[in-house]
Amino acid sequence: MNGRPGLDVSQLPAYAIGPRGLLWWGTLGMVAIEGTMFAIFIVAYFYLRSSAIEWPPNLPPPDLWYGTLNTLILLASTLPNQWVLKAAERQDSRAVRLGLLLCLVFGLAFSTLRAFEFPALNCSWDSNAYGSAVWTLLGFHTLHLVTDVLDTAVLTIVMFTRRIEGRRFSDVSENSVYWYFVVGAWIPVYSVIYLAPRLI
């Protein structure tokens, strides 16, 4: 190969937002893997249930109050999330800064209430197989929740303290996509943990 120039790419942009960028595909892969994990944990829950005589075994079902309140907060959080996503696509730094702050407030509120959800399960992870199943489900969702809140916090600090790089808009946009996954995964997880023992 003699190094004869055939294609000059120096004028191409140094970042891309959305499905053109690497980060979007990385997030998609992560969502595919973790979504499968949620499905596996839910199947495990119902598999254990199928061979149990009483469900939950010798325990009251989880208290509805905190989980339901949290679900409402989570659904409301999609409004600032969508707003910041659009602002990132427009590369509007003022709106992105404000939107990130709002998302962070929702994320922190949700995480705080989550701390009350664990005692409301009315069982311990080592009470029995049921306890393990619900703690794993709720714990796995909490892991994603905390990860995204941390990510949002770091992005917020960076957006306020440093000169804004264009690729940060792509970071913000992918962070919002991930948050949609956290919300989307919660709806089946909530239904399984809180509604399934009562309704089915």
């Binding site: 004869r4 120039p5 055939g6 294609l7 000059d8 790419v9 191409l12 140094a14 690497l22």
Partner: peptide, 17 residues
Amino acid sequence: NQPVVIGLRHDIPEVLV
């Protein structure tokens, strides 16, 4: 001897997408 891509920096780790 197919032509090559130019315009990527050598001092900063940069790749073409």
